[in-house]
Nucleic acid binder design. Structure first.
Length: 490
RNA sequence: GCCCUCAUCGUCUAGAGGCCUAGGACGCCGCCCUUUCAAGGCGGAGAUCAGGGGUUCGAAUCCCCUUGAGGGCGCCA
């Protein structure tokens, strides 16, 4: 059998972490088995769906490298032979109506004239009487006269599926194994809303069948929808796909991941400077693992190793700290050129005039601190002093410049550096050490003030590499500036 | 309230009856390296496997109950 899987987001916002994880698992499952990965847009919520969200989802998917073989594409284009892949277009094509009418004709669906208010009352009453909150099926046996009466009142009916009231619905979930539901607790869900739009449970099942989806891999929150959809398949005489329900992703407090836990969309993490590779790797490990608990995967390795068998049944808490650690790992693996290209936009964004150095020089400077970066967004603040006027941090001044002998040291170093013909790392280091030794200073005693004088801070790249990159002119200028500052200290 | 699901270090997890005195990773602590901050190396603390009953010669692993957590019960998806 051909493996065909789909990711079916509804365009009501940006692609969030949970959705991205579902998309990734579907993608990996397809790649692993040489199957087809399909992107379907479920925009049957006519009030909340937006084209903007749809495009944002496309963009996040592309960025994550989750390229789909079939489905909706940007600019209203489509790819594949099972289209359209946007449900509103399928609705326009009459696809849902056709199958709904067949069920209606065969007596497996019925018109429901209940108003939202009536349904709300029904639920309230059930709540009060401690009964299950499901629809009581009152419109199932409406007489023609009653129906006509409602029609005359101007009520537009919704179409409900007639759920079997006895027996059980069973299926084998690829992750959870055997699942069983009493049909009596299932309910007559709405297939077609009064507006004519299909509901999720209806459109989803119809499309999965028509698109020949072999495996439905989705979040745990859909478990209770599965028996509903299974009964629909059954009524239609269709063979259902296999199901696999992924555990949820929770926030640090164990509650469902939401805004108050911090960034929740792929886009936000991208902005922070998480690499796409990092996010893929991290997300893959939320609810899935290999038997050796491998953490970092090489390019293409996830596609090769992914397996539904390694999926966890229990929910996973999203850990931003581990994400950051992993991002550092991936940043360290970047080539100089890759890092430079990635960092560039963050530099420009934070107002650094990157053009004041040659691209080679700028790349060189950025890579000086490569092993320290955890987020691309923190790069500018770590190396900005190479590109603009030095600013002495309060902290550094208090900690270093107030020590004895700083003035003597800076003056001495200034002299030494001025006389240097070859202003390179080795020469600078030799000269600096030499100065310390011949004047009876400990190396640290000299290094620290020099560091603060040229960079304005106590932490940074290897001192002599840093000074070489700064250049003779800048270095001397900054030592002078530090000397001026010293005079103002009391 | 009803239904469903889940339960191993703080967190992500390995574990499919004896290999478990429970392994790895993040984080934390210490040491080494070192001019700083990182990175790296080495080491450490951290889980009576939610609790209680069974089954078995033997259970983290199988069964039952309890508890806790999550999900669903929408003309949302």
């Amino acid at each position: 059998m051909n493996i065909r899987v789909r990711f079916a987001p509804s365009p009501t916002g940006h692609l969030h972490i949970g959705g991205a994880r579902t998309a990734l698992f579907n993608y990996l499952f397809a790649k692993k088995s040489g199957g087809t990965f399909i992107l379907r847009i479920e925009d049957t919520d006519e009030l909340r769906s937006t084209e903007e969200s749809m495009n944002s989802i496309f963009e996040s998917m592309k960025w994550l490298g989750l390229d789909w073989d079939e489905g909706a594409m940007p600019d209203l284009a489509e790819k594949g032979n099972s289209g359209p892949y946007v449900q509103s277009k399928r609705q326009d094509a009459g696809i849902y109506k056709k199958h709904a009418e067949r069920l209606l004709k065969e007596g497996m669906a019925y018109r429901c004239y209940c108003t939202p208010e009536e349904l709300e009352d029904m639920r309230r009453k059930a709540q009060l009487e401690k009964r299950p909150l499901r629809y009581d099926g009152r419109c199932r046996k409406l007489s023609n006269a009653q129906a006509e009466d409602f029609e005359r009142q101007g009520r537009r009916p919704a179409l409900r599926f007639s759920m079997p009231q006895e027996g059980k619905t069973q299926f084998v979930d690829l992750i959870h194994k055997e699942m069983e539901f009493e049909n009596a607790i299932l309910y007559d869900f709405i297939m077609i809303k009064a507006s004519g739009y299909p509901t999720y449970n209806f459109a989803c099942a119809i499309d999965d069948h028509l698109m020949e989806i072999s495996n439905v891999i989705r979040g745990d929150d859909h478990i209770s929808n599965t028996p509903l959809q299974l009964n629909l398949y059954n009524a239609l005489g269709w063979a259902p796909p296999d199901f696999a329900h992924l555990s949820m992703i929770l926030g640090s407090d164990g509650a469902r991941l939401s805004k108050r836990h911090g960034a929740t969309s792929v886009q936000e993490y991208r902005k922070q400077g998480i690499l796409a590779e990092t996010l893929r790797n991290y997300l893959a490990l939320l609810g899935w693992s290999t038997s050796d608990s491998k953490q970092i995967f090489e390019k293409g390795e996830l596609e090769e190793k992914f397996d539904l068998k390694g999926c966890q049944k229990n929910p996973a808490i999203f850990d931003p700290v581990k994400l950051k650690w992993m991002n550092g790992e991936y940043i360290r693996k970047l080539s100089k050129q890759e890092l430079f290209l990635l960092a560039k936009s963050y530099m420009v964004e934070s107002g650094i005039d990157i053009e004041c150095q040659s691209p080679e020089k700028a790349a060189d400077i950025i890579c000086l601190e490569q092993e320290k970066y955890k987020l691309l967004s923190e790069i500018p603040s770590m190396i900005d002093f190479f590109f603009k006027e030095v600013i002495y941090s309060r902290d550094a001044v208090d900690k270093v410049f107030r020590a004895h002998g700083v003035e003597v040291i800076l003056n001495g170093i200034k002299d030494k550096y001025s006389g240097l013909g070859n202003f390179n790392e080795a020469e600078i280091e030799a000269e600096t050490r030499n100065f310390a030794k011949s004047n009876g200073f400990k190396t640290g005693q000299v290094f620290h003030p020099v560091r603060v004088a040229v960079s304005g801070r106590t932490e940074g790249p290897t001192l002599f590499k840093m000074i070489e990159r700064l250049g003779k002119e800048q270095t001397l200028k900054r030592i002078d500036k530090a000397l001026e500052l010293l005079k103002t200290l009391v």
